[in-house]
Every structure is written in structure tokens, then in C-alpha cells.
Amino acid sequence: MSENAAQAAEATAAAIASKATYTGGAAGLAGFLTQTDWLGLLGVGIALTGLIISFYFSYQRNQREKEEHEIRMRQLRDQCNVKE
């Protein structure tokens, strides 16, 4: 899979995870307010799953941006003949 396609898939998954977190939180709140235990637990489970997925994709994005930064810095140092 090309890098652009991978980034697009990652952005889509992160957006879905974010929406799942909000939906799960809302379902958990609704279950709490209506005192429906299973709905509250389901909502909390969905919210936690969405949160974990969001953290995972944020970590991957951070690692990728860090690598890109290091490559750019190496290129700039080579252009300027700067020694580390």
C-alpha cells in the first residue's frame, strides 16, 4: 500500500475512533441517567475502545512525523555542511 493510502486509511480510522469514543460516552451517560446497567457498561466499553484506538493512531502519527523531521534535519545539515 502506498504511503498516501496508508495515511488516508489511518486518518479515517482515527476519525472513526474519535466518533466511537463520543458515541460510547453518550451511550454510557444515557445508561447512567436511565439506570440501565447494560447500556451504561456497553457505552463505557465503546468509549474505552475508541480512546485506545485514538491513542494508537496518534502514537503512530507521532512516530512517523518524528522520522520525517529527522530526515529533513539531516538533509538541511548536508546542505549547510554542518557537522554534529
Rank of each mutant, 00 (worst) to 15 (best):
K19G: 12
L76E: 04
I71K: 15
F32P: 00
A26I: 09
T21Y: 11
L76N: 03
N4L: 06
A8H: 11
I53V: 06
L42H: 03
D37P: 04
L41A: 12
T34K: 09
R74Q: 13
L41I: 07
Q35L: 07
N62V: 03
A15R: 09
N62Y: 15
L51E: 04
S18G: 12
R64S: 08
G40I: 00
G31S: 01
Q63N: 15
A47S: 07
I52P: 07
K83M: 11
L42T: 03
E68A: 13
R64E: 05
S18C: 10
Q7N: 15
S58G: 10
A14E: 01
A13W: 01
R64A: 12
A47F: 01
G45W: 07
A5K: 15
A13D: 09
M73I: 12
Q60D: 05
S54V: 10
E68D: 14
G45D: 06
A47M: 05
Q75H: 08
R61G: 02
A9G: 05
E67N: 07
G45M: 14
R72W: 05
K19S: 07
Y22S: 15
T36R: 08
E84T: 13
R72G: 06
Q79W: 08
N62I: 03
E68W: 08
E67D: 13
F57G: 01
A20S: 11
S18K: 11
I53M: 06
F55K: 10
